[in-house]
Design a protein around this nucleic acid. Structure first.
Lengths: 262, 262
DNA sequence: ATTTTTATTAATCTAAAGGTTTATTTATAA
DNA sequence: TTATAAATAAACCTTTAGATTAATAAAAAT
């Protein structure tokens, strides 16, 4: 099952360390009637914009169909020309780049956004990926990497260079560390709730009042009150809102999902 | 499968697309008095356990100091021997592997856990990384990859093979997609709240009742009620709990934080 | 300069929520 | 068999929450 080693050589490098495994750059098919990849560039620096355009247009299968120096223009261009790729500089002043990516994603034109920036800040990378960026590259990186990134993203992959990927994961795990402490903590008072009390709390967490809960569970509303009072005591809270807040802060709904899933 | 591409050598593979860029396998220093990396294996299948042990012990700088066929034993061994690496099979029956990883993380011994499993399920990968796994590899992968993963993780990196990394990001973005729609949406009804109403809602979201809110804002509780009723109308909800739920689901508190931060 | 609108304040009244006790039924453990 | 825990429900009572109306001051529009 585990192949012995020593046969690695080329193996080793290809084996892993990556988001994208296949080196598609070698597979480029320029022969077939492949439509050119439509690219739109967004950068507030005009010179920079032209520089990148030159670079990308060197590639015969890419076509920079438009450029924009501000976000609103970019949005309009994307709506009109339906590009495959949007290279988005996220250091732009007026409207910040992350918001821009969000708005482009909301258009749902299928345009794949690659963030292009000077900052390798963990939080920035994390937020960019969160809102749907398909890639994130630094301006300091080699031009070949930019081309490679576009090709990878065009294949439906996510492109994060090695170093940034590490940063992403560090930040990712840091972000979830606290959540795990509480959500996973066996010391949650939620564990003492009975099945029925959980059902009641779940409905409260969805915003129902006692009468509605009673109707949904086919029991009297006085019974609901009894359950709720027991919930208050067990969770050590004094009203419905606090109970709901406790439930949310202690991953009650996540836990519910897991119960169904597993 | 992803070691193909003939010419791989270093080129493309080194360009990035990865969590770990440097091919540390070529840099292994066995000359200096490097202490051996202490590894503990956890797998409910004894034969499998022995197989992996053999494999890892072939590496002169690794040392499998203990093995365990169940989680509780593993936890004790980790506490006692403080290993550098824990290779954790997450298909174990009694206590599931993810819970096990959580518990090991909670020990905070500094042991780096690598998940080892037969399933390349997106959700499983995501959850494993969330709770702090430093790597995730499939049993079907080449043995060399296992060794490589350990070396990378020992350098403080996160190791996710190419294919799994893609799955991870797909799942990651899918998970945050809904959150973005609401949290980023400028169409939130929260925007219509006045300053005072925001203050009231913020306190409600912290679990205070009307009297407490009144005291905190130095106004009468009947005034609080007025504000709250206006909030209800603006948010189109019918009680306090629903208002708080609306606030939370629409990133009210996040927005508050941003206001301070930015 | 004046109306108009908006934000903040507040009192009154009704409905709902919350606290306490008691009681019945059913399943489960000792 | 007898405790024990869970789910159900009612009666009683107190407090809080929610709806309605209205006064005041400041800002905006005419």
């Amino acid at each position: 099952m585990w192949m012995s080693k020593k046969n690695c050589a080329c193996n080793m490098n290809s084996v892993g360390h990556g988001i994208t495994g296949s080196a598609s750059v070698y597979m480029r098919r320029e022969t077939e009637f492949t439509k050119k990849v439509k690219v739109i560039l967004v950068d507030d620096n005009y010179d920079h914009l032209m520089g990148i355009r030159e670079l990308i247009n060197l590639e015969t299968n890419f076509d920079v169909i438009a450029t924009a120096t501000n976000v609103n223009l970019a949005i309009n261009l994307i709506k009109r020309y339906q590009p495959d790729i949007v290279l988005m500089d996220i250091n732009m002043p007026e409207k910040d780049g992350l918001t821009a990516i969000s708005e482009i994603e909301k258009l749902e034109t299928g345009a794949k956004v690659i963030a292009l920036t000077g900052y390798d800040d963990s939080d920035l990378i994390f937020r960019a990926m969160k809102i749907g960026a398909k890639g994130y590259i630094l301006k300091t990186m080699a031009s070949a990497q930019l081309i490679y990134a576009i090709e990878e993203v065009m294949q439906g992959k996510i492109y994060l260079p090695s170093g940034l990927s590490s940063r992403f994961f560090e930040y990712f795990q840091k972000t979830f560390k606290e959540e795990n402490k509480t959500a996973n903590a066996s010391e949650t008072l939620l564990q003492y709730l009975t099945q029925r009390e959980e059902e009641v709390l779940e409905l409260l967490t969805l915003g129902y009042n006692y009468k509605e809960v009673a109707n949904k569970l086919f029991i009297s509303d006085t019974t609901v009150k009894t359950h709720v009072n027991n919930i208050f005591q067990k969770l050590q809270v004094s009203d419905r809102t606090q109970a709901v807040l406790y439930a949310i802060n202690n991953g009650f709904m996540n836990r519910k999902k897991l119960k169904i899933a597993i």
